[in-house]
Amino acid sequence: MPRIEVIKESCKGCQLCVPACPHGLVLFTKTEINQMGYYPVEYVDPEDKCTGCMLCAIICPDVAIRVYK
């Protein structure tokens, strides 16, 4: 199944990927904090909706998203 992986230590929580995902699978939950002091986004996909379209990874300014297909 296609999926993404958020590299939490690279993410700066700019939230550009949140509206970029057509299925709303990337969420800004503010549940944890990384070493740089930012809230990283979270990838939540219980129904395997991710299609691997890479839109979130293309818009990410910190290359914090890996896409697997």
Partner: peptide, 23 residues
């Protein structure tokens, strides 16, 4: 299918969150 390019070092960008420089 999508990862950090080889020509970028592993060092994280020092730009502000959301800055277009990273892209």
């Amino acid at each position: 299918v999508f990862d950090r390019p080889k020509s970028l070092t592993k060092r994280g960008f020092t730009y502000c969150p959301g800055c277009g420089h990273g892209v």
